[in-house]
Write a protein that binds this DNA or RNA. Structure first.
Lengths: 342, 342
DNA sequence: CTGTTAGCGCGTTCAC
DNA sequence: GTGAACGCGCTAACAG
């Protein structure tokens, strides 16, 4: 029951492997192979369940039909969701996906790019870490299809898909201001990632435009433990008691923050407004519900995989495309002093 | 800057490709290649950044160093988390992971197994759907390393890793009973998956042992829309008003249920006890917090990948192993009538 | 002892 | 419609 080779098919049918190969690849007509023979071969292949060896094919053609997906962490629901959407489309187009998580470690990111390169993946979807511009540039220079997402590398001519962090942050902050919050704090990570910086700047723009004061709390990035985050937020609330709203730059920070506030008995919405980046079941169901900026995951994924497929189709004519999608601002109860269900 | 081949290395150094290959694969000593030559070759390879073609190597050796991961849905946080853990260990051992989601469709599951087989993955981690026993059996008969998880295929001699659904469900139900709930409903999916059946049976055992009455609500499985689930639960609560606790068999059902109950203004815990399968941030932070049965994700993943690696190492001596890990019963406020924080 | 030759794995594709 | 080279690395058998 071992695997059959094209040679065996050929010899069983007393024809050459070339003929079988042409038929397999739909070039029967082009190569003027008689319909009868074509039918005979097709039938034989079907009957004996012959499957060409993918490795041999890849070795010869240089195509693996594999897409390399490099994300910060596949276990993160955001990236997992993107992985799911991408897979659907990739699957329909005959591609499989091989993934790896950088854990935001540039060294690992570089290794991953190398490994994927060694394995001849046909295209790359990458969430870049800091300091891997040169590796990405190398891929591009080698004419390999690459699409970045979530974070861009500004200095590179490469396709990118992301969301409008600056604009959505600005709009969200403006909304809080419109709801009469006067001292809005922004809790973020101490990170230089462009998307994080944009979120901060969007907030600050809204603050400055309205002649308000900005309160920015940067939580240390690496292995930020929950209780440390809580301690920092608590400290901030104690030293700046006039703060009347918090805008969290990430999901995780917000969840930790909510836990703290619940424990402190602070009434979210009434006493303290809240806005969060990245939506989540929790924010919808929490009482009061929490307003959030939802990333357009579906749209981003679609764009990502479309761009990549297109790029893989015609490597030469393809021109890079930067897509910045609008986020969805979801207004719930936490961003108004008068709660609907209060 | 195209890729260099072993042949080029050999000719540049005026030696044979065999020599280079032996050195590359650490067989220099075994093959009595002089240390000087070894050093020279190593240096040359380093300098010119030569990387052997993985495809050629795989074609020759039959090993791809790729693990095929077939889950129900990679976008589901549970599977994504498993994927993350597995990746860590796989990576350290030189394996990459190629994934695909079955969406619980047997047809797709079969296709995926075929595809992965075509692509010569070295090992399989599979969340089986119904009706793919024969495909899995085929893999096993072909001596391919397979580990199942989440759901077992009872009739197959194959390694399996999962958690003790029956026991943990039984314990959780018993706990509710011990907290003086008398009419406990069990809300589950209308599914014949073994793990779902075990959860139901565990609940029923606790009910019967205590001479209570079981209320089982099976929600239709396919594409269960939120509002339909809500309608079903609401109907149940109306027709069986004496129900004083709900035990949800899945995370998703519970989230939907909580949303409904909050809307109805039912006081979870006091008026209606609650227990849920699969933990989640939401359950921890919800007020009142929701008791849950947490899957031992870390432990399961570790066991999964260990078993598979072992199996891939010595295909012959390996004997199948069934691992059923205990779940973590996390008692919070929703499972007592007297809430701690009430 | 050191290192080489040559065939293999298997599908693709050019030249006839 | 075919023969044979080719993509590239591995390794048993062999020569010096």
């Amino acid at each position: 029951m071992k695997k059959m080779s094209i040679k065996e098919v050929a010899s069983a049918l007393q024809i050459s492997t070339a003929t079988v190969s042409y038929i397999l690849n739909g070039k029967a007509k082009e190569k003027r192979i008689s319909p009868e023979l074509t039918k005979k071969v097709t039938a034989f292949i079907e009957e004996n369940n012959f499957r060409p060896n993918h490795l041999a094919k890849s070795l010869r053609t240089g195509k693996t039909n594999v897409i390399g997906l490099i994300v910060e962490d596949i276990a993160d629901p955001f990236f997992a969701s993107v992985a799911g959407h991408i897979e659907n489309v990739a699957y329909e187009n005959g591609y499989k996906i091989i993934y790896s998580s950088t854990k935001n470690d540039p060294k690992k990111a570089k290794e991953l790019i190398d490994t994927f390169r060694d394995r001849n993946v046909d295209g790359y979807i990458i969430t870049p870490t800091e300091g891997i511009d040169s590796e990405i540039k190398y891929l591009i220079d080698s004419k390999l299809p690459v699409v970045l997402f979530d974070r861009n590398c500004n200095d590179l001519d490469v396709s990118y898909v992301g969301m409008n962090n600056f604009e959505s942050s600005y709009q969200a902050a403006k909304y809080l201001i419109s709801q009469d919050y006067k001292n809005i704090a922004f809790v973020t990570l101490d990170s230089v990632q462009p998307q994080m910086i944009d979120r901060l700047l969007g907030y600050e723009r809204a603050i400055y435009e309205n002649r308000l004061v900005s309160y920015v709390k940067k939580v240390e990035y690496r292995a930020a433990k929950e209780h440390l985050i809580m301690a920092e937020i608590e400290h901030m609330l104690n030293t700046e008691p006039h703060i009347d709203a918090i805008f969290f730059a990430t999901n995780y920070l917000a969840i930790t923050g909510i836990e703290l506030l619940n424990r402190l008995g602070v009434k979210i919405g009434e006493e303290l407004g809240m806005m969060v980046f990245d939506d989540n079941d929790l924010f919808r169901i929490h009482q009061p519900s929490i307003s959030a900026i939802a990333q357009p995951i579906q749209e981003m994924s679609q764009q990502l995989i479309n761009d990549l497929l297109e790029h893989m189709q015609d490597t030469n004519e393809y021109t890079n495309r930067t897509t910045v999608l609008p986020a969805h601002l979801i207004i719930r109860d936490s961003s108004s002093k008068t709660r609907k269900n209060a």
